[in-house]
């Protein structure tokens, strides 16, 4: 009987994401004991609310990392798409048009990244590092270093600050996006192709998969989700600025993806894991906030968590 139980335990412990969900639950319990108001429903919704932009970007980033790539441009893409939305809205006063413009911008930048990586075969880290600078510079030229105040009314701010059934709209967007992409990743041909490219690019190519197109599309998705995050952020604070999504944004996003069990070598990963990773980091920083831990220590703690998670995995897999 005990043998059966431990066998069952082994199966559970061996499941990817089990360690993370267990630590998440443990963490919530610890914070709840240290500070009972943590479990208050408003606080819990607040935790999710604060990680929506990171979470939305992390969902897109998961696809890129699953092919073995990386996208460092999410920060400036967030900024420039907020600006595009602002200027489109100012010009046309149309919410759908500005949403479309912003997401189109993000997707286009992603397409450039993807083309450089897939068709010119340049290293993703350098390509997106260079594009980070290019996009930020472009954003600053377009918007200048100032804050742009959004005009009143017309429902644009609904995206970031509205409520549906007592839950912020941005949280709904995050949840819907997560479910949609999780479905795409697990149940679509594209999802399998992404993982196949990351697992063995040559095998995918020889089996007739459009490897370069798939790679490019992952960057397009990542750019589009960064743009969506930019929309939400600008509508949350009623402003758009070229300086949003400062350096470190991409680190948060990558951290969430990697914590969620997606391998940086590509091939292995899941959107659901990423969502767990996002929630984990959100709980960590909310908890540390409640406990009044200074921001700088939080920054160091985050670095340590990533390093710890990564090296633990490198140890168990015995590879790079």
């Amino acid at each position: 009987m005990i043998g059966r139980l431990s066998q069952l335990g082994g199966v559970w412990l061996g499941r990817p994401g089990f360690g993370l969900s267990a630590s998440l639950i443990a963490l919530v319990a610890i914070f709840a004991i240290l500070s009972p108001e943590f479990l208050h429903i408003d606080n819990l919704v607040g935790v999710v609310h604060r990680v929506t932009t990171t979470g939305i970007m992390a969902v897109g980033m998961t696809f890129v990392i699953m092919t073995g790539g990386i996208d460092l441009t999410v920060g400036p893409v967030l900024a420039i798409s907020g600006l595009v939305a602002f200027f489109t809205f100012e010009g046309s006063a149309s919410v759908p048009l500005s949403v479309l413009g912003a997401i189109g911008t993000g997707a286009a930048i992603g397409a450039l990244n993807g083309a450089a990586v897939a068709y010119l075969r340049l290293p993703p880290i350098i390509v997106t590092l260079a594009m980070l600078s290019i996009v930020r510079g472009t954003a600053l030229i377009v918007g200048g270093p100032i804050l742009h105040q959004l005009p009143e009314g017309a429902g644009y701010e609904f995206i970031g600050t509205g409520f549906l059934f007592g839950v912020p709209v941005s949280v709904w967007i995050f949840l819907a996006l997560a479910m949609l992409t999780a479905f795409v990743q697990r149940r679509s041909a594209f999802g399998l192709e992404v993982a196949a490219v990351g697992d063995n690019e040559r095998a995918a190519f020889l089996s007739g998969r459009p490897v370069r197109l798939v790679k490019t599309l992952t960057y397009v998705i990542c750019g589009a989700t960064a743009a969506l995050a930019g929309l939400i952020q600008s509508s949350q604070v009623y402003t758009a600025s070229a300086n949003f999504g400062e350096f470190g944004t991409e680190l948060d996003v990558i951290a969430a993806v990697v914590l969620g069990g997606t391998s940086l070598q590509g091939g292995r990963g899941s959107i659901l894991g990423t969502v767990m990773g996002v929630l984990f980091l959100g709980v960590v920083s909310s908890g540390l906030n409640i406990l009044d831990v200074p921001v700088d220590v939080q920054l160091i703690a985050k670095g340590l968590i990533i390093v710890g998670a990564l090296s633990a995995r490198a140890g168990t897999q015995g590879q790079i």
Binding site: L192, A195, A196, D199, N200, R202, A203, A204, L206, G267, R268
Partner: peptide, 11 residues
């Protein structure tokens, strides 16, 4: 050149 080693037989 052939197998997706991290994937299932079905995949």
């Amino acid at each position: 050149d052939g197998l997706l080693l991290a994937h299932s037989v079905a995949d």
